[in-house]
Amino acid sequence: MKVLMFYELAEDGLSKARAHATSHQARLREFHGRGVLLMAGPYGAPPVGALGVFTSRAAAEEFARDDPFMLNGVVGKCTIHEWNEDLA
């Protein structure tokens, strides 16, 4: 089982993203380096949100709790869902 974390941009989130991108990306690299974040990235053109694939709910919650995008109003909504991947 994996855990999906969905970010939805705040109404004015895109305009705030650039100012916090470096610290957000550092957090992504930290969690990926620990092996608890498998992949992440924005979706939509232009972006309307982002998706992260984590190894546990605890890791996804920890990431979101102190993510600069969450703390500085880039993200308007965060949801976390369990995902039973099926490779068949």
Rank of each mutant, 00 (worst) to 15 (best):
G33H: 10
H20E: 02
L14A: 06
R29I: 08
V36W: 12
L28W: 10
H32P: 00
V36K: 07
Q25Y: 10
G13H: 02
E30M: 07
S23G: 01
T22Q: 13
M39C: 10
A21D: 03
L37W: 11
T22L: 08
G35F: 10
L37T: 05
G35T: 08
S15R: 11
V36Q: 11
G13K: 02
R34M: 15
S15Q: 12
H20A: 01
A21S: 10
A10Q: 04
L37V: 08
Q25N: 13
R27Y: 04
A10T: 05
R18M: 06
V36M: 08
L38N: 06
A17F: 05
K16H: 03
G35K: 09
A21I: 07
A17R: 15
L28P: 00
G13F: 00
A21L: 12
A19G: 03
A26D: 07
R34P: 06
A19F: 02
H32Q: 14
R18W: 03
H20D: 00
T22H: 08
A26P: 01
K16Y: 00
V36I: 15
M39Y: 04
Q25L: 15
A26R: 12
G13A: 03
S15M: 06
L37A: 07
M39I: 10
E30R: 08
A21F: 11
T22R: 12
R27D: 08
L28N: 09
D12A: 11
L14V: 01
E11W: 02
G35H: 09
H32A: 15
A26T: 08
E11A: 14
Q25R: 15
K16C: 00
E11N: 10
S15P: 01
G13L: 03
R18I: 03
K16R: 15
E11H: 08
G35E: 06
R34I: 03
H24G: 07
Q25M: 14
M39P: 00
H24L: 04
A17E: 12
H20N: 10
L37N: 07
R29V: 11
G33W: 13
M39N: 08
A21T: 10
R18Q: 10
A10D: 14
E11D: 14
R29L: 12
L28C: 08
A21P: 00
G33R: 11
